[in-house]
Amino acid sequence: MKNLHSEILFNRPVNDRYWKMAVDVTALEESVRPGQFFHIQCSDDWRNLLRRPFSVYKFDRRTRILEFLYLIKGSGTQALMKKRPGEMLDMIGPLGKPFSLPAGDASILLAARGVGVATLHALAQAVPAEGRRAIAIVSAQKRDDLLAVDDLRQSGAQVYAVTDEDGTSTMDQVGKLAEMLIEDYGISAVYTCGSKRLAKLMQNLATIHNLYAEIAMEAHMACGLGDCYACACPIRKEKGIEAVRICSEGPVFPLRQAVLS
């Protein structure tokens, strides 16, 4: 992990709410793994004093180009949007525990809602090299927000998109779809990010079908390193429920440990 000042290669809108940014991370020797994140200084403005965490969306080992997919949410991401190619981005990373895959070469299921797809895309991108396939359920409010679908397909994932707009994203429908995919593709592991309801659904399915399952969690962060306990959230451990740091002990956790109510 390093505090990098990385050159911005591009920063452009994907639609009216989402942007993509690429940075050059040749200064980083270590590997960048799916599920990890970077803690980014969005501006020098005192409105945005704290860094913001963003997941690795895409990482090219060869060119060492790192991409983020981000939702324009508040003042921090609004400032990020204004950064131009050639400017330097102050970021700390890679941080956090990455996703892990169970042994074997069975396909994996990704279940993402909203910008959660940004985190899971990196995993979809990485699995073909392991000789396995990613099947993705991508859920969003509107058809327009199904942004990563093309990128996921390009990374070799089989994508099933559902939206509130089309009335295809109820938990009932997604549950049936997931059951079908688990059977049809002989899924051995599921990964989820972006929605508690979706995570709960996957938690149940994983238990029923005895699947390996992980979740990428979110919390407001200050240090991002594990020192301040700002990000601690309840996680079910052997001893009972404990407050665990999302930034350093996560953001990826076994799905059965997630406290979702």
Binding site: H220, A222, A230, C231, C233
Partner: peptide
């Protein structure tokens, strides 16, 4: 949680 929030010119924890 949330255990922190950002405010102008600082943070609350």
């Amino acid at each position: 949680g949330p255990r922190i929030c950002e405010v102008e010119g600082g943070m609350i924890n």
